[in-house]
């Protein structure tokens, strides 16, 4: 498993009595890009949350959940496996803390983890994402697209092993989608991050050629299982 960023088997969560979302198999190394390409409501965000350890997994047979060679246990402190140099997460709704400036929001995960700030990388991110000059504005003082780019910078500042992107361009106008996706791809490559993208519109754009995790739905004992799986590498 040396150098493996993601190693997952049968990681799932039951969402009520009739639905379960499962990541059946996923292995990724640094620089890999995988797209969870499924229709809305299939459980893509839930799958990302499971992978990130942000959603507690239910008990399934044969569960394996390793990120950056660290096995994730149910009660492990989040910073043990989810520090900004391991996981970066871009949320669909580009949530920022409203009382912090753009720059404070970007730096927050690194400050929480007590890690050293890479100012050169920060300057590079701000410039590349077009945020220079907006550092001291509050989220309410910038546009939706700029907020999304702040969220991307926040996820990338720690140079994470794994970058999780949940519909990162869904709130943008179509003219900007391709540009932002291309930026993410380049910056993730600069950061040497493995990328998992949840998107229902990745058939075109920068991630059109990326590998896909297959999605299928199975009925088992009256429970609908929404299953994501990729070929092992």
């Amino acid at each position: 498993m040396g150098g493996q960023v993601v190693h997952i088997r049968n990681l799932g969560v039951r969402l009520g009595p009739e639905l379960a979302v499962i990541v059946e198999a996923m292995d990724m190394s640094a620089g890999d890009v995988v797209v969870l390409d499924a229709e809305s409501g299939a459980g893509k965000s839930t799958a990302l949350g499971l992978i990130a350890g942000a959603i507690p997994a239910s008990a399934f047979d044969g569960t394996v959940h390793c990120l950056s060679n660290t096995e994730i246990t149910p009660h492990a402190p989040r910073l043990d496996y989810g520090s900004p140099d391991r996981i970066g997460f871009v949320l669909q709704t580009n949530i920022l803390l409203p009382y912090l400036t753009a720059l404070e929001n970007i730096r927050l995960p690194v400050e929480i983890a007590g890690q050293t700030l890479d100012t050169a990388w920060l300057t590079h991110l701000l410039g590349a994402l077009g945020l220079s000059g907006l550092e001291y504005r509050k989220p309410t003082e910038i546009s939706v697209g700029q907020r999304q780019r702040v969220a991307i910078a926040r996820a990338l500042l720690g140079r994470p092993d794994l970058l999780l992107l949940d519909e990162p361009v869904s709130a943008l106008d179509p003219g900007n989608v391709g540009q932002v996706e291309a930026l993410i791809e380049v910056l993730a490559e600069d950061a040497k991050s493995a990328v998992i993208l949840a998107s229902h519109q990745a058939a075109r754009g920068a991630f059109a050629g990326a590998r896909r995790a297959h999605h299928r739905v199975e009925q088992r004992d009256g429970v609908t299982h929404s299953i994501f799986a990729m070929e092992t590498v």
Binding site: P77, R78, L91, I95, L97, P109, I112
Partner: peptide
């Protein structure tokens, strides 16, 4: 609530 949830996701103990 969502801000506190975000802080949890970002690892604030």
């Amino acid at each position: 609530r969502i801000a506190f949830s975000l802080l949890t996701l970002l690892g604030l103990p």
